[in-house]
Design a binder for these strands. Structure first.
Lengths: 153, 153
DNA sequence: CCTGAAACACCTCAAGT
DNA sequence: ACTTGAGGTGTTTCAGG
């Protein structure tokens, strides 16, 4: 994993803000022609610096306005139990993110739904069906102050 | 905000997975020609269903392997204090996400850094400089079980 | 590692159904 | 609301510096 130069970093900064920018536009910003920009981007893709290109959707237009963060602690922490929990969580389509944490709780879950009623149903019918959950604590997003997929590089 | 039909939803599902898919490829999946797909995408963009197109980067390649979640409660909750806190948080480039929450704490922050040492410095030099922070509790991601920008639509 | 040019594919839109 | 078709533009490749 060799080091990136300033041009590479500049390209990454542009693409993580707006991946629709053409190689030509990026080339102009960097005072280059399209070819080197094209080749650098391909290299950044192949080396794994760029994971994928996606469209970010507006959740409020798509009836997913309610975002909940759910903190879960397990009752038993044997490896088998943890892996089973993880695979069961991955099967829940409503769960957008799940992290195994170090701290007072074991897992953070981020869940997008249409309403609090749906969240109630989600907990009642899906989460509570997962064995080995000890503590379950829910938080709801009142307002997104700031949210980006960009890294400060 | 009129309703989306199945074709629109199918297009959104494809684009939030891979925005590099060409209109031609999408058209083939949907048994259409490129033109109607093109027009639908433009409409979805203009109506705000699609917010933006971005490249998702690999944080481990970019020295941002440490992800912390920081839970903050304010000491005073007057409107002025909250807004001041929010604007100060927005100025911190390391903070990728910040949500005002309903629950036992006021704010969730997601922070990407290179090391725990950097996190220590971040808290010491930047977070602790913000007035009005009462409680500050840190959690660290041990493992990303699941993480996507997609919504289940 | 870059430039410039040529070939190719896709985007974009107008006209027709 | 979709199809066809054609012109414009961006992508991709490559010889040469």
């Amino acid at each position: 994993m060799e080091k990136l130069d300033d041009v590479d970093l500049h390209i990454l900064r542009i693409l993580q803000k707006d991946s629709k920018k053409t190689t030509k536009e990026i080339a102009k910003i960097l005072n280059l022609t399209a070819s080197p920009v094209y080749e650098r981007i391909r290299r950044l893709e192949n080396k794994g610096y760029i994971k994928k290109y996606v469209a970010l959707l507006n959740k409020t237009h798509l009836n997913k306005a309610v975002t909940a963060v759910c903190m879960v602690s397990l009752r038993y922490h044997n490896e088998g139990f943890i892996e089973k929990f993880e695979s069961q969580i991955k099967a829940l389509k409503e769960v957008q993110e799940c992290y195994h944490m170090a701290g007072k709780v074991d897992f953070f879950l981020k869940i997008n739904l249409e309403s609090l009623t749906d969240y109630h149903e989600f907990v009642r019918l899906k989460l509570s069906k997962i064995e080995n959950i000890g503590v379950l604590e829910s938080y709801f997003v009142l307002k997104e102050i700031h949210s980006t997929t960009e890294f400060y590089i």
